[in-house]
Simulated assay, not measured.
Amino acid sequence: MTPRLHPREEERLRELRRYNILDTERERDFDDLVEIASQICEVPVSVVNFIDEGRQWFKAEVGLGVRSTPIETSLCGHVILEGDFVEIPDTLKDERMADNPLCTEEPGFRFYAGAVLRTEKGLPLGTLCVLDHKPRTLTPHQRRVLEVLSKHVMRELELRLALAQEQTLRREVDHRVKNSLASIGALLSMKAQRATDEAVQTALEDASIRIRSLSSLHAELHDLAQGERVELRSLFERIERDLRQLLPDGIRLVIEVGNDRVSPSLANALLLIVNEFVSNSVKHGLQDRSGSIAIAIRAGDDGWSIACSDDGSATSADAERAALAKGLGTRVIQSLASSFGVAPDWSANGSGMHLRIDAAA
């Protein structure tokens, strides 16, 4: 007998697809559950299955050897229309299964017991079930084990769904924040171009550089999977493009960086150091709006380093002031270096400012 459709079949199928479990690879988490069910219930076959449209699909199985069967021969297709737990001591004495070839042909399934996998909405997705080739019954302890294991399956599915929803929400928020930062940076840049007061123009350009660079970092982090490390070359290619748009036409910027991957916290620190050095160079060392700024970044198993220099007019006295962290930008760099247990090294001789930070692993 072919199983009847659930009274809320369309809604049930939508709910099943919401979990994104169909046609996924086998996983140890589920394989362990069917192995435990098979051993505790002392049966040769145990499965975690989901009733899809036109088929019964197995996420995990012991003793079956297939991943799906047609809905016409599905025992569980009948079971999901009933209560939370169904036991059939002899399938050939059950009118729903007495003509099922899975039961009538040798070696047929003569015993069935299944705990329904039910969502919080009360909709059945499938079962965790055990089967035997001979009629029998389960003990109360064995029934209880099946019920507990079925709840564990649903908890695993609900947890995965919640994590997927959280990641989707986080990415949506990240996307909006990234766009907002980019918009604010562009707006500040436009305001700077229209400002008539030089001090106001410099302040707006400085803020624009900071925000646009943070937007670039946010964009890079947005593309990362959870726990993944930041690729420095990709990040600083974005940073270099943004900074070049904001710097005066006469200032040349070159950032050299390898394919190293670092933690988001180190990537953020390196970005801020570059921001502050470039900003200080434009404001103080390259006041005639011409010259060059060079950045070299290296990161590896033995640690990381960053070297920044410009060919402006900084003197040894300027380097001493930078080392004392008198200005906002140099205080930021000092704080960032200190957070990694190192100190920035400033130097100048009238032909430009130089900054180097070395950190051992």
Results as ranks from 00 to 15, higher is better:
13 L>S: 07
14 R>V: 11
22 L>H: 07
25 E>S: 05
40 I>M: 08
47 V>P: 12
49 N>W: 01
62 V>Y: 03
71 I>K: 15
72 E>R: 12
73 T>N: 13
78 H>T: 13
89 P>N: 03
91 T>I: 01
95 E>T: 07
95 E>W: 00
106 E>H: 09
111 F>P: 02
116 V>F: 03
118 R>M: 10
121 K>G: 15
126 G>S: 09
127 T>R: 04
129 C>R: 12
133 H>D: 01
134 K>S: 08
143 R>D: 13
144 R>N: 13
152 H>W: 10
157 L>M: 15
169 L>G: 03
171 R>S: 10
178 K>G: 06
178 K>W: 15
187 L>F: 11
189 S>F: 02
190 M>C: 12
193 Q>D: 15
194 R>F: 15
195 A>F: 05
200 V>Q: 13
203 A>K: 13
204 L>N: 04
206 D>Q: 05
208 S>I: 04
208 S>W: 00
210 R>Q: 11
211 I>K: 02
222 H>F: 12
223 D>R: 15
225 A>W: 07
228 E>V: 06
239 I>K: 02
240 E>F: 01
242 D>K: 03
259 N>C: 02
267 A>G: 00
278 V>T: 12
284 H>A: 15
289 R>L: 00
292 S>Q: 10
295 I>Q: 05
300 G>W: 13
301 D>A: 11
302 D>R: 14
302 D>N: 09
306 I>C: 02
306 I>F: 00
314 A>V: 12
323 A>W: 08
329 G>K: 00
333 I>H: 01
334 Q>T: 09
342 V>C: 10
348 A>K: 02
